[in-house]
Amino acid sequence: MEGLERIVLAHPFFAGLEAELGPVVSGCARNHRFNPGQYLAHEGDPADEFFLIRHGKVALEILPPGQSPVVFSTEGEGDIVGTSWLVPPYRWRFDARAVELTRAIGIDARCLRDKCEADPRLGYEMMKRIAPILEGRLGDMRLQMLDVYGERAR
């Protein structure tokens, strides 16, 4: 097993992946290092890559017009950053900024999408891994929306 493949398969997102799919996935992967303050992605950019965070912290933020950026989530070791690569028009819907030194594996989204189209088994495997993350984040957002510690909770 190549070094990069070993790193990719060691990430929780790919835990338990069938061995024969390892080279297929890692064939779309490359290493990244982001310094504090460096952006992984900007809102509106093509979502042609997503990231498996190996170490560090990434702030997901939105810039309201005329205001400072609002951080709505941070992702850390073991998390993934980016799901817009799954859904047309494949564009980032927020900014992603490294809060501290962050090491990540970038997965070339077009490469992986093409492989998923060619092999539905891989496509289904990816969907089974992405869906719980989306469901979890949707639940988290609902709780944030309730603003349970705020004025309305009184």
Binding site: K57, S68, V70, V71, F72, T74, G76, E100, D147
Partner: peptide, 23 residues
């Protein structure tokens, strides 16, 4: 520690507290 929302000056976690359980 985590907060529900923050500005870019905050270097800690942002997100709901149940999310910390896995960490």
């Amino acid at each position: 520690v985590t907060v529900d929302r923050a500005d870019a000056e905050w270097r800690g976690n942002v997100g709901v507290v149940p999310k910390l359980i896995a960490r």
